[in-house]
Design a protein around this nucleic acid. Structure first.
Length: 684
RNA sequence: GCCACCCUAGCUCAGCUGGUAGAGCAGCGGUUUUGUAAACCGCAGGUCGUGGGUUCGAGUCCCACGGGUGGCUCCA
């Protein structure tokens, strides 16, 4: 006989209902309005259809589009978008009956559906798809869950002849397979193999939009068939959708590629090469200030700066493992002329050449893909005592990697970049303390720049992969060290197998760009392998040779990517200490030209980056220009100021701060710059 | 690298179904002498990414290449 279950509601009260009661019934018993608004229910963290009979006790909540405070509910959006994916799939199947559906989950910001269809869907056809979707939504058809025993379900899927769904069914867990029918007429209405859950009916999808289409490999495998991935999004109301689209549009104005051009920060020229950054004077200022900043931090932390060349012999990278492990993502090796002509005489083919390079029969040079081998050779250039350790070698080292053309992206994914790199050589006992020091440094960097919105990822090796070098025991040790260090960080972190470097695990700081893509910035990596490959040693207090441990770390990651992310973080409005032009002087009329020149000179000798706008335009135009160029301070000099030796200070985005003596401004400016204050000269 | 789309003046963009290019801003020259987000007039500026092809005729249609955008894959 059916017993009762206890549902603990969000307000803490407990409701006892007979097992088998549906979510909808529970919602209705709480309130009519709630039952009307409900999209689904959540029981112990699992989301269920409103129509699903509930069979176990647990903490229970009704999912509605918005919270009581009026905020959109993440679970609600999840279910809504999943349902919308079904509606879109049905619309596409109506338009192109030969379409084979593959997989259509909700994702952050919307949903997609992977579809195998010979006809290539174009952006012009989105309206057509949306029109079909609108019909389905208007019909308010219920989503009906149908469960079949596994064997019966499998034969049903097989009978339909869609190999992708057969594959999905085979991968599905449990002894029943569930299908969702968009409608009540089972066997006639559109249906899809699906785990659910779904909203009660299509009418709950208040507003939707098909947003883009792209290629995607089946199972995410580049060797598999390429499918069409149609993206869309859905919201409870048109207003929500409009706000969402508006937000996207606004955030795209912060795109570093756009601002990089507008603010003359950097340029990429196809004549130079894809993914190779030309830093224009304004961008160079930002980079130099960051380098100065990190340089000061390094000095405080006992680092030694070194310089090494951009290339090295191939053998060096054979020893390190970079060449054999990553030859596909390197610029091709530089082979000497005599060697090439000799090979040409021997009728050596390109394939032969590649093979000989691989086998080590030909030497050559490689644009360095990493700085570590060079730093290792500095370490190894003399006998090391334990008294020298930890030895911390730092360099703004430029490296080159042949990234796939489709991956290149402004400054965030490039082929030549400069790492704020350092390699720490230490004893086993020093690893933990050194790791903590590195992580503190990364935190200092992020804090100084006001970047709070990052996540921490501990990248571990994927046991199934063969791309890693070194003994499992060493990996165990290194991974343990990373975990411990991450715990000390005091921030949440996730452990991700498969994200390690080929020589060791790492702790990465990951941020998002304006369109939601994640980029790895700062990184700290523990390495037991390269010291072994290069047979590094130091003499311990016992007068015996020991193997040091290496730590690779780069708080910025690369200056290119970091500056790219920073441009977006500040929307181009760099803090005072970083701004390419910190101060602009502007006159009201020609009569103050000389006074302006004097103010400009005074600013310059105070160490500020300053220019002046002495054109014949109105002050309004000069203000507008300074705002658009995102210059932190505009010093206006009119008749009054010229007389009294003062300036009218306008702070970027903040209107007029009023008149102050030039000396007072300079004093405050100097203090703000040397403290690298994010808020400029304004005092609390 | 793969799929789709895009490439017109320094920048942002217009140019319907093929009839040999247009605006705003920036620039330059004048006029205006101006008080916190854009004064006015004029001038100049493009072999329409490159190379082929179709056509009497191509910015517009087709092909190849280069570059870019979105996604996939990759990312030491």
């Amino acid at each position: 006989m059916s017993s009762n279950i206890q549902l603990r509601l969000p307000d803490g009260s407990v409701r006892e209902v007979p097992a088998g009661t549906t979510g909808h019934e529970v919602a209705a018993s709480i309130g009519k309005r709630l039952a009307q608004d409900a999209l689904a229910v959540k029981l112990d963290g699992e989301i269920y259809d409103l129509s699903r009979p509930l069979t176990q006790s647990g903490s229970f909540g009704v999912i509605t589009p918005r919270s009581r405070e009026g905020e959109l509910n993440a679970d609600g959006l999840y279910v809504l978008r999943h349902s919308c994916a079904h509606v879109m799939a049905e619309a596409i199947c109506r338009l192109w009956p030969e379409a084979k559906l593959v997989y259509g989950p909700p994702v952050e910001g919307g949903y997609y559906y992977d579809i195998d269809l010979p006809h290539k869907i174009s952006a012009e056809e989105f309206a057509k798809i949306e029109a079909e979707m609108a019909k389905i939504v208007a019909e308010q058809r219920p989503f009906t869950r149908v469960e079949l025993p596994r064997a019966e379900g499998m034969s049903k899927v097989q009978a339909e002849g869609n190999p992708y769904k057969v594959d999905n069914a085979q991968r599905a867990e449990g002894d029943v397979l569930s299908f969702y029918v968009t409608g009540a007429r089972i066997g006639q209405d559109f249906e899809d193999l699906c785990r659910g859950p779904h909203v009660p009916h299509t009418g709950k999808i208040g507003a939707f939009k098909v947003t883009s289409v792209a290629g995607a490999y089946w199972h995410g495998d580049a060797n598999q068939q390429q499918l069409q991935r149609v993206y869309g999004t859905a919201f409870p109301s048109q207003k929500d959708l409009d706000e969402h689209l508006k937000r996207i549009e606004e955030s795209q104005k912060r795109d570093h590629r756009l601002l990089g051009k507008q603010l003359e920060l950097f340029h990429i020229d196809e004549a130079v090469g894809q993914g190779l950054i030309l830093w224009k004077p304004n961008g160079a200022v930002v980079r130099k200030e960051l380098q100065k900043f990190i340089g000061e931090e390094l000095a405080k932390h006992g680092y030694h700066e070194v310089f090494t060349p951009h290339i090295g012999k191939l053998d060096l990278y054979r020893t390190s493992g970079h060449f054999p492990y990553y030859s596909d993502s390197q610029y091709p090796p530089v082979v000497m002329r005599e060697e090439l002509s000799k090979l040409a005489d021997e009728k050596c083919s390109c394939a032969d050449l590649a093979h000989k390079l691989e086998a080590g029969e030909i030497d050559g040079y490689l644009l360095k893909p990493m700085n570590c081998p060079h730093h290792i050779k500095i370490y190894a250039s003399q006998r090391r005592s334990y008294r020298e350790l930890p030895l911390r070698l730092a360099e703004f080292g430029t490296v080159y990697r042949w990234e796939q053309s489709g991956e290149l992206n402004g400054m965030t994914r490039v082929r030549g970049f400069t790492q704020d790199d350092a390699h720490l050589f230490c004893t086993e006992e020093q690893v933990a303390a050194e790791l903590r020091g590195c992580l503190d440094l990364v935190k200092t960097v992020f804090r100084t720049l006001g970047m709070q919105d990052y996540r921490v990822r501990v990248g571990l090796r994927d046991p199934a992969s063969t791309k890693y070098t070194g003994a499992p025991e060493l990996w165990e040790k290194a991974e343990h060290a990373c975990r411990e260090a991450a715990k000390h960080l005091g921030a949440k972190f996730t452990e991700e197998p498969g994200e390690a470097a080929f020589y060791g695990p790492k702790i990465d700081f990951v941020v998002k760009d304006v369109i939601g893509r994640e980029w790895q910035l700062g990184t700290v990596q523990v390495d037991y392998n390269l010291p072994q490959r290069f047979e590094l040693s130091y003499i311990g207090s016992d007068n015996q040779a020991h193997r040091p441990v290496m730590i690779h770390r780069a708080p910025f990651g690369s200056l290119e990517r970091f500056v790219g992310v920073l441009i977006e973080h500040f929307a181009g409005a760099f803090p005072f200490w970083l701004a390419p032009i910190q101060v602009r002087v502007a006159n009201i009329t020609d009569k103050q030209e000389e006074a302006c020149r004097q103010v400009e000179a005074a600013c310059r000798s105070a160490g500020l980056r300053v220019d002046s706008d002495l054109g014949h335009g109105k002050i309004n135009a000069k203000v507008a220009a300074a705002e658009q160029e995102k210059i932190p301070y505009l010093l206006v000099v009119g008749e009054r100021e010229a007389q009294s030796g003062s300036v009218a200070v306008r702070e970027r985005g903040r209107k007029n701060l009023g008149e102050m003596k030039l000396e007072a401004f300079l004093e405050r400016a100097r203090a703000a710059v040397s403290a690298r204050r994010l808020e400029g000269i304004a005092t609390e």
